[in-house]
Simulated scan of single mutants.
Amino acid sequence: MSPEAVADEVVDARASSAFLVNESLGYLFPAALRAAAVVGVADHLADGPRTAAELARATRTDARSLYRVLRLLATRGVFEEDAVGRFRLTAAGDALRTDAPCSARSAVLMNTDRSMWLPTADLSRCVTEGTSAFEHLFGLPFFEYFAQDEDTADVFHTGMAAMSDAENGPIADACDFPPTGTVVDVGGGHGGFLLTVLDRHPALRGILYDRPHVLAGHRLDTPGTAGRWSTESGDFFTAVPEGDVLVLKRILHDWEDDQCVALLDRCRAALAPGGRILVVEAVVPPGNAPHQAKALDLLLMAALVGRERTAPEFAGLFEAAGLKPARVTPTPTVLSVVEAVAV
């Protein structure tokens, strides 16, 4: 090898090493994003730019430390620092305000909560042992821990509702609902998606099905939906309310294949004649292109027992549950509508 080729190889190796070192520091951005969300910085920038010192007084934080957090977030377009050291909200950062339309603050707090964060630091355990890291760290499986920790459960369910708010409309528009009948939102949380569906389809009725402590925070009681909804509580692995359309939005990815098949079997038994099951999930695409499903898959691996799936993997679950795969409809969000009917 010529001296020039050796020199080029050394330069390439240094560049690759620098790239990987920089990638290994990537966790500091969500850490900074969480810090800004916790203290509510964005709420104090709604009326215009302010210095870190002014923001520190408003948020009762340390000015120098706050400045360093904001400076990093400015490199990613959440805030923008001007020539005199004042920070302003960008279009992206505006969604961090508590009262912003489709605020992401609760979702950020959920995704960076220690119940999500700590297991991901132990991914090597998942890789070597083929199991979730959550129970090792917290002493209980994910949902059992949430059932006995009210504060963490509230962070999770509020965060899921916030994460869903921006996607509910486009997903509801992509779904093929009948003109009349009953839609059952299985494991539907606070009911944001079902509310959107009922608002768009005035002749439909809806049932929100979840655990009692989750249903306590439902959002269905609006003038436009009066008399067209009800809530039912229970264990969806045991039984599911009957309906013409059963929706499973961000549910199957929480569970192992055999649990998904059991749940889908309960849904098949609850379908009215000619009914359909709509599984709303991120479908992992082939190839090397970035997709949020590939990142969320690791979060699921670390904290739960489920995973994100490809379209053929969903088809396999349907067939095992006595269902026929129908179609996969992409939406403008990261989620798709994967449809199944009874055989």
Rank of each mutant, 00 (worst) to 15 (best):
M1L: 04
V6I: 15
V6K: 12
F19N: 01
L25K: 05
L28T: 15
A31L: 11
A36V: 10
H44M: 02
R50P: 09
R50V: 09
R57L: 10
R57M: 11
A63F: 03
L66C: 04
L70D: 05
R71H: 02
R76H: 14
V84M: 00
R88Q: 11
T90C: 10
A95L: 03
A107S: 13
D113L: 03
D113Y: 09
R114W: 11
T120E: 12
A121D: 03
A121V: 03
D122R: 11
L123S: 02
R125P: 00
T128G: 04
T128D: 12
G130H: 13
G130Y: 09
T131Q: 11
L137F: 10
F143Q: 02
F143P: 01
A147Y: 01
A153L: 08
F156R: 00
G159L: 03
G159M: 10
M160G: 09
M160H: 11
A161C: 01
A162M: 08
A166G: 14
N168K: 15
A172L: 03
A172N: 03
A174E: 13
P178Q: 06
G191W: 12
G192F: 14
H201F: 10
A203C: 12
D210P: 08
L215G: 00
W229N: 06
T231G: 14
E232D: 13
S233D: 13
V240R: 02
Q259M: 04
Q259S: 12
A262R: 14
R276D: 01
L278Q: 12
V284E: 14
P285K: 02
G287D: 10
N288F: 09
P290Y: 04
L298K: 07
L299T: 05
G306V: 13
E308A: 10
R309F: 08
A315K: 02
G322T: 08
T329L: 05
P332S: 04
V337I: 10
